[in-house]
Design a protein around this nucleic acid. Structure first.
Lengths: 208, 208
DNA sequence: AGGCTAATGACAGCCGCTGACAATTGACAA
DNA sequence: TTGTCAATTGTCAGCGGCTGTCATTAGCCT
């Protein structure tokens, strides 16, 4: 961020991202063309593609930002915590600092609404799931290192993270369909779903 | 399959699917255009899109076929089995009858190689993950009905299926990267990974 | 001030995909 | 058998995402 050039680049990127998210959350993803976004920032379409690999990358950019913070949060967890507990605390912690990160670029409101856009748009949901898998691979490596394991020989890190991710995905999905669609509700849902995941696998579901 | 018309339709669909899979597994997905596929069957590009909603649907069609059988297998499981056990037996059973289903359209070899193509091609992997999530929703409904639960009030069916699906995804992914890339190896991996998933969540990973 | 390099715009073109309409071909009854 | 109806296909035109190329502009550095 030193030179004028770098500041200018950052500003156009932010402007593109802002316009993209605004258009996606109002007009919808499919009904927004890349030309629309570029025009809103008064930039050529070609320039858009120099900042984002594709239309979908612009839609998921905020998410990726938050995800990075989550990964760092996992890394920052004390080594004595059990893996699943570390993941649990890392997510919940991320939700706390989320506000600050997001609002440097767009209003929190827009970020939340993007969740629903993603969930409603097949191609975006697909891309989102793929990103999530990549994230899981990264986190599995973090956990493996924490515990001193070789991931190529021991599948447990990947398995644990995949299971955790699965629970989080169900949480996310159900959350976006709720009336109380805010951070506090997400927090509660996350906690209860993580609690119920274990029993759901082992216990009988039929009421005793 | 009664009338000539229906038989003809089935034949062109099969031919398109066969050509698509052959081209994808040899030339690669991205390097194969829809025009290539249509030309190989001597049909217009427009006709291809009348049979497949998109290029990716043709790439995942075989997989969807197998998935349907898996869902039926779950439905067919005796009601006294615990949910996770029913899923486990259903998958393993599916792998047994897989051969017959697939070989009605393409050689089994092609089907297996498509796994790697999917895993290597970001856009295909994304679509595959989305399909998997839809499958999980369906299966959750099946389990909920088996156990007499209301999915809207009780998250356990979705959670259990999501966790099961997560383990299967890790299995799939690791399997495609192995030397012994055949059905028998997949069988073994599935069994051991499903065994290790539980302990991976609760036990300490550090050697005692 | 002037040369260097990075960022942008303009243009052409490929590919996936869709709508519309005309032509063809099988189904079915008179 | 033939004529009518409906389903299948081909053709064409066009949009939108995305990329390569090259000329132009604008910040950087001595």
């Amino acid at each position: 961020m030193e030179t004028l050039r770098e500041r200018k680049k950052q500003r156009t990127r932010d402007a593109l991202l802002r316009s993209a998210v605004e258009l996606f959350t109002t007009r919808g993803y499919e009904r927004t063309t890349v030309d629309d976004i570029a025009a809103a920032v008064d930039v050529s379409q070609r320039t858009f593609f120099r900042y984002f690999a594709g239309k979908d990358e612009a839609a998921l950019a905020l998410h990726d930002l938050v995800t990075e913070r989550f990964i760092e949060a996992v890394r920052a967890r004390p080594a004595h915590e059990a893996p699943m507990e570390a993941l649990r605390r890392a997510v919940l912690g991320s939700w706390d600092t989320l506000n600050e990160i997001v609002e440097e670029v767009v209003p929190l409101e827009w970020f939340l609404r993007m969740y629903r856009v993603i969930e409603e748009t097949p191609v975006l949901l697909a891309a989102h799931l793929r990103h999530s898998e990549e994230t899981e691979e990264t986190i599995a490596r973090v956990l493996a290192e924490r515990e001193g394991l070789d991931m190529d020989a021991d599948p447990r890190p990947r398995l644990a993270v995949a299971v955790f991710g699965a629970v989080m995905r169900v949480t996310e999905r159900q959350w976006t369909r709720r009336e109380d669609f805010d951070l506090e509700a997400m927090r509660e849902l996350t906690i209860t779903y993580l609690e119920q995941a274990g029993p759901a696998l082992t216990d009988s579901w039929r009421t005793h």
